[in-house]
Each structure stands twice: as C-alpha cells, then as structure tokens.
Amino acid sequence: MLTNTWAFTRRELKVYFNSPIAYIIIVLALVISGWLFFLDFFLAGQTTLRPLLTGWLPMVFLVFVPAITMRLIAEEKKSGTVELLVTLPVTDWEIVLGKYLASLALLGVTIVLTFSYIITVSLLGDPDGGAIFGQYAGLFLLGATYLAIGLFASGITANQIVAFLVAIVIIAAFFLVDKFTPFFPGPLASVLEFLGVNYHFENMARGVIDSRDLLYYLSMIFLFLFLAVRALESRKWK
C-alpha cells in the first residue's frame, strides 16, 4: 500500500516541479500574502504573525489550493489515463492518497518558505513561540482540509476549470458558513459554527490546541478524500 501510494506521490510531485505552474503559484501566494501582511505590520507594532498566518494566507489559499488540486484527477479523466489507472493493480485509495500527499507536500513547501517571518519577528522582538506554533499547525490543517476538498472537486469532473470553480465554491462555503450564524436560531447556529473551518482555526490560532478541533479537521479531510475515492470509483460503473 505504502509503496504504491508513494509511487503516485512521486509522480505527481515530478509533474508539479517539472512544469512552471507550481513555481508561479507558490511565488504568487508568497508575494501577495507578504505584501498584504506588511501593509500594517509596522503600524500595529506587535511581534505577531497572526494577521499573516490566520488572515491573509487562508484567504490566498482559497485560490491557491484549488489551483494546486484542480489538475490532479480531472486531467486523468480528460486524457483518458484514468481508465489505465483503475485497471492497475492499485486501489483507488492508493491513487487518491498518493495524489493528496503530493499536493500536501507542495503546501508544506509553501508554508516552510514563510518561516522567514519567524526569523524576522524573533529579530525584532520577543514573539510568543507557542502561539506561532499553534498558528502554523492550524494553517497546515486548514490547508490540508482545503486540499481534500479540492481533490474531491477534481474527481467529479474532467474539466480543470470546473474543478477549480467547484473547489472554490465548496471551500468558500466552509470558510464563510460561520459568518451567517446570527441569522439562525441558537442550536442551528452552533452546528453551523462547528461546521465552519474558521471557528476551529481561530481557536488554534491563539496557540491553544484542542482535540475537538483536530478531530474536526481530520474528519473533514477523511470525508472529502473518501468522496474523492467514490468519484474515482464511479468511473468503473459507467
């Protein structure tokens, strides 16, 4: 299982890094989020990365993540290689997981590249390391959840643009759902709030890690990977 998964991961990583697309996406994400962050960093005068890690990057990820994932399955469907894939002696889970891990690696690289900000705030003052750890952990889980959603969106269509747009819509729905809680009665509002990624993210961004938030993210990731597997399987029945 592991070797098969790893084979897919390596293959996808090669595709990412052999084309200019990945580099362009990463550079754009870094430059845009960095630019936005520095708009008021010196004015706010605090050694915190919170506006970047919990404000701008999640916003940039809204577009960045679908751009990474849109190709993953849709391309195979378009070019017909998916027929080949499903006849290989590998399970659908191995295919999906392999592709997912490749996109996760790309996300990881992007996030690691922002570590220059940790150095910066450490040089300029005394930041709260625990809070930064929580923010990075939260950002990674948020990105990982988005990627699972993006992968699912890529699995339901052979058109990359459709996959991209569907991913943005679903991610935005989970990103914004807690903004609408004031319009719902109490118990329903609590459910919506729990469903939204933001509530859990805000919680972690303080530097407090709660098993409930971890469970939420892992459940979301599992659910959408499962749905992606189902989307891939569905080819077999046609």
């Binding site: 580099y23 520095f38 705030v121 300029l124 005394d126």
Partner: peptide, 27 residues
C-alpha cells in the same frame, strides 16, 4: 509584544522586502 522601537525606516524597508521577495526568489 511590541516590536523593537528603535527600528529605522531603512531597516523596516529591508525587512519588508526581504520577507516579501526573499522566499519567492528562492523558489
């Protein structure tokens, strides 16, 4: 957790652009 208040404008400028473009250049 305040930033170093003695930071000059030049230093600010350097930190800003090093962070925005540094990692991107690396990529």
């Amino acid at each position: 957790r305040p930033l170093d208040p003695t930071l000059t404008d030049g230093a600010r400028w350097r930190y800003k652009y090093a962070n925005i473009f540094g990692p991107a250049v690396l990529v």
